[in-house]
């Protein structure tokens, strides 16, 4: 099984968010997790991404333990899309998207550029905003740049924290369709936290956070 979560416990001081979480997800699936305010959706994604210290359990992607993996290697396997902000203010959008490739790989500048332009085209992101700095973006543009940065590394696991905020149904639907197209070229698992019915319907599986666990909805 490509993604295997076993006995995952996530807790903040005084609050248990997830206890003995067990999930198995097949390759090339889109999984939606229905979230409500402060129910731990974001923390779950960060936990799965190995971005949190001090959590117990196992998260295995293609058999590799994400929680104990070298952060640099993990950054090339797991893409993370923040609900808000998530970009580095010192860099413009192009540099933000290119950053993981430039820092972790020896991919040439021309290839980096062509990969970014190709993603812009696929996801209908205006190339002109690539020269903008994060402060000049609206929420949707910011999330799309986050998405492109996560995809530029061709991740095996893509974690998206509430993609829908401020997006029209058409843009949201197109984005999901494009993600499915991307999955054909790059066999990745996509997990999205959402409160949007369209996303929940379009996902291959959907879950709900209930009693510190994930309960499958359909």
């Amino acid at each position: 099984m490509p993604l295997l979560v076993k006995n995952l416990n996530i807790e903040y001081p005084g609050k248990v968010l997830f206890k003995d979480l067990q999930v198995e997800i097949e390759d090339q699936k889109i999984v939606a997790v229905r979230t409500e305010v402060l129910d731990g959706g974001t923390t779950l994604l960060k936990g799965l991404a190995g971005m949190l210290d001090g959590i117990d359990g196992e998260v295995r992607l293609d058999g590799i333990d994400l929680l104990h993996m070298d952060p640099a290697q993990r950054a090339l396997k797991v893409g993370y899309v923040y609900e808000q902000q998530g970009l580095v203010s010192l860099y413009d959008c192009f540099q933000n998207i290119a950053l993981p490739l430039q820092f972790h790989t020896t991919t040439g500048n021309e290839l980096v550029e062509s990969r970014i332009f190709s993603l812009c085209e696929k996801f209908n992101v205006d190339r002109q905003i690539l020269n903008e700095y994060p402060h000049a973006l609206n929420d949707v543009q910011c999330r799309m740049i986050n998405l492109l940065r996560a995809l530029v590394i061709e991740p095996k696991l893509l974690l998206i924290d509430e993609l829908e905020g401020g997006m029209s149904e058409r843009v949201l639907g197109d984005t999901i369709d494009t993600l499915r197209e991307e999955q054909k070229n790059n066999a990745m698992i996509v997990i999205i936290t959402t409160a949007d019915d369209l996303l929940l319907d379009q996902a291959d599986y959907s879950y709900q956070i209930e009693n510190n666990k994930l309960r499958e909805c359909h």
Partner: peptide, 17 residues
């Protein structure tokens, strides 16, 4: 201080940087 408020240190950690 602003970068900390924006959680950009965490963003970089998440990118393995």
């Amino acid at each position: 201080g602003y970068l900390r408020l924006q959680r950009e240190f965490q963003v970089l950690n998440g990118l393995g940087i």
